[in-house]
Amino acid sequence: MTTVTRYGPPVGELLRDWRRTRGMSQLGLSIEAGVSTRHLSFVETGRSRPSRELILRLTDQLDIPLAERNRVLLAGGYAPAHPTHELGDPHLVPIRAAVLQILDGHNPYPAVLIDQHWHLVDANPAVALLTAGAEPHLLTPPVNVLRLSLHPEGMAPRILNLPEWRTHLLHRLRQQAAKSNDPALYELHEELRGYPGDNGRTAPVEDAASRVVIPLRYRHDGQELSFFTTTTVFGTPRDVTVAGLAVEAFFPADAATRDRLHTLGRA
């Protein structure tokens, strides 16, 4: 069994903090993980050192992100369980191929590949119609797609329902930050909250799409385009990089948008 030198907070403290973040009691977690409440209490207070198997069981029940599971294992004196590869690594060739197939197949509709911090990893050509008019500093890597969307020098001036769309994105980001307990996401949320966008009221639109989902109403070359989005993630990832990837795909929410995108695609 491989052991490693421990750094940072002790393993019990990390597990306790995640348990509290998830709003679980010691009793509730002990039942789910199949361990006695007394033993869990001893682990959290440092009176008992958990085995590698117990750490894996507890982190799984707490639905801790893979990178943080590695951190908990390191704190317990064990080697990480989940590898981290670059997307261009030979190990991830099938993943890369699948992503490219999704992006290319989605044309002429926009689609982007993002990481866990909303940085742009890849995109198909149709995304250019959304980024046209944004200032160059927002398009310089690493590009954060939420910053690009809500920044007053980015897409925001052309989003016709900016207050509604801004509220949607901030709520989604807040939920992600709470689930992952990632300081970088909380910092991004605070930054985006400071951007203008709450002033003014969005004119209500009574169409089929807006009664089902919140559309992105976007002005492009004097014409309004309406989109709804879907998010695709990889099922049962074991690699830290893969676990953080998601494809955000934009679909036309009405026939006029569909026809316009196909015309632009042919051009």
Rank of each mutant, 00 (worst) to 15 (best):
M24K: 10
A67T: 08
A67G: 11
T3K: 04
T231D: 00
I114L: 13
V213Y: 09
R211N: 09
L27D: 14
A128F: 03
R38M: 07
R22L: 11
V143E: 08
A246C: 09
P125T: 07
N199K: 14
H168W: 12
L261E: 12
L216N: 07
L74D: 01
L225I: 09
L14D: 10
Q61R: 15
V247C: 13
R19N: 12
T202L: 03
L192P: 12
D89I: 08
V143D: 03
A208N: 06
P10A: 00
A132V: 12
R96C: 05
A132L: 09
V35N: 01
H171C: 02
S210A: 14
L192C: 09
P136E: 06
S36D: 08
I31P: 02
L103I: 08
E206N: 12
D198C: 06
L148D: 08
R219P: 03
T202D: 14
T263H: 13
R147D: 14
A246N: 09
W118S: 04
L54Q: 01
V99S: 02
R219G: 03
R52Q: 00
A75L: 07
L56W: 04
D115L: 11
N107V: 14
S41R: 08
V143H: 05
N144C: 07
T257G: 08
S51F: 00
T3A: 02
I64F: 04
D60P: 01
T140K: 10
H119R: 14
R16W: 08
R147S: 13
A79R: 15
L150T: 10
L29C: 12
H189Q: 13
R217Y: 05
R172P: 01
G46R: 00
S30W: 01
E32F: 01
E68A: 12
T21H: 10
P94G: 02
V145N: 02
L188M: 09
R22W: 06
P183N: 02
T231A: 12
D207I: 04
T229I: 14
E44D: 01
P9W: 01
L150N: 05
A267W: 03
E53H: 04
L162I: 03
N181M: 06
Q101L: 13
L130E: 04
P50I: 01
E135W: 05
R52W: 01
R16Q: 15
A67I: 03
H189C: 11
T140F: 00
L170Y: 13
L160S: 05
G23W: 00
H91P: 02
H262L: 12
V35I: 15
Q176E: 15
G46Y: 02
T230D: 07
L103N: 08
G200P: 09
H168G: 01
I159R: 00
A249V: 03
H82P: 06
D17S: 13
T202C: 11
A111P: 11
L170T: 06
H39E: 07
R69N: 06
E191A: 04
T3N: 04
P163R: 06
P237H: 04
P141F: 00
R20Q: 15
S25C: 12
L130Y: 09
A209I: 15
R166K: 15
L120H: 05
G200S: 05
K179W: 11
L129E: 05
S149L: 11
G77H: 01
M24Q: 15
L225N: 05
Q176A: 13
G235Y: 04
D254E: 08
L138N: 07
Y186G: 02
F234M: 13
T140R: 10
